Computed example of a mutant assay.
Amino acid sequence: MNLALADIRHGIGRFLITCVGIGLLLGVALSMVGIYQGVVREALALTRSLGAELWVVEQGTRGPFAEASRVPGDVREMVARIPGVAAAGGLTLRTAEAEGPQGRIRLQVVGYEPGRPGGPGSLVEGRALGGARFELVADARSGLPLGATLHLGADRYRVVGITRGLVASGGDPLVFATLRDSQEMQFRQAPPAARRALAAGALPAVTDTVNAVVAVLHPGADPSAVAETVRRWKHLSALTAAEQEDLLTRSVVQRARMQLGIFTVVLLFVSGVIIALIIYTMTMDKRREIATLKLIGAPDRTIAGLVLQQAMLIGAFGFVAGLVLLLSVRDHFPRAVELGVFEVAVMAGVTATICLLASVLSIRAALRIDPQQALGG
């Protein structure tokens, strides 16, 4: 007879409540791991969706995601003529707030030229942008349905396409507009400001400005060599796709990754302490039963197995409960929760290790129990 299972059946209610409590704790730990992975995926979502192999930015800057970058719009033609470049397109990025169907939303507006690099990789609904003005392709996380309208700047835009999984590094959903519309939103002055500038003798604002030029290379072209060609121009800098991803993960989201990582480690440590206390309490509640086993000649390995099996069963049931809970609610999180097979397997191993270590104290305490306690009051 398996003593651990027999003891669990005897107090099944308490065991299930304990597993649910452990499951909630492990579910929070799993969510931290998922959010940690989601931060990285969200930071790289736009760059990977664009498929750009080269980013041309203002000299002395590290790209539009890390700091401000402005280059003349005609740079895209210069980049397109570099040997090895198949196509190039201008790109603008700006953060905006708009009144949506479900209230005010914060968006990252990406402006690109339809037919050139810079647009969303794929749509789940609707169509891509064409030649018409004041149209948007929005990510599903924005809550904007197909056909919805919203004000951006001084104009009203209509959603004609929906993407999925495209958000900025800060978690704001992306919307794509034509380059001309985006440039006007970002660089056009309001009429009163323009009149004051003209009265003061200032030149009209130049709107043919972009934050970066993205390029797609011919098959076999060396991105590093093409980037080095661009860097020879004294007023421009360039990053390959690998350098842009490295910059995003090591600079733009590094602090968020560190904070989530530290919080995850602390949470796992707390989980280990709580599991150890629960197992110890359950073991001490069975002092008389353990003393009786010793009195009838049960070996120490039987008693150690009783405690260890219960600890591992609590960890296993708690882990499954936490995983099921997280998978059922993760779509409602404000940030992406990315849990793959590898992350789940690693967390299962960490949970098993925590339960194993947590049972050591209880096993030592159980082995010290005097068999005479079975005869006491």
Rank of each mutant, 00 (worst) to 15 (best):
R158L: 01
M258Y: 02
L356S: 12
L91T: 09
W55M: 01
H332M: 08
L339M: 10
V75K: 02
Y157A: 05
Q59S: 09
M347S: 11
D139R: 08
V270G: 10
P192S: 03
T178K: 11
T353A: 15
Y36K: 10
I22K: 07
P145R: 01
L236S: 10
L54F: 11
A316Q: 03
P219M: 06
F176V: 04
L129M: 08
L5K: 01
L217V: 03
A304P: 00
D300I: 00
A154Y: 11
T18A: 13
P192K: 02
F187S: 07
L326S: 00
D246K: 05
R116H: 10
G126T: 06
H235S: 06
Q254K: 15
R232T: 09
I279R: 05
V210H: 04
P191R: 01
I8Q: 04
I8K: 03
Q310T: 05
L136S: 04
G305S: 08
S224C: 00
T95D: 14
D246R: 04
L3H: 06
F134K: 10
L198Y: 10
A140Y: 05
R116Q: 13
H235D: 11
T18P: 00
M78V: 12
A177M: 09
P101R: 15
V226F: 14
A366C: 07
V337D: 02
G63T: 09
E228G: 10
E184T: 09
L50Y: 08
G297S: 02
P117K: 11
L136V: 13
F317N: 01
E113V: 12
G297C: 02
P299N: 03
E338M: 08
R156S: 14
A168W: 15
C355S: 15
E42H: 11
C19I: 03
A86Y: 11
L306N: 06
T302Y: 13
R104N: 04
L239F: 13
E53R: 15
A138F: 14
P299M: 05
A242N: 04
G147Q: 08
L146H: 14
S224N: 03
G220A: 06
T163Q: 08
V216P: 00
L323S: 06
S49Q: 04
L268F: 07
G100L: 01
I22C: 04
A154G: 08
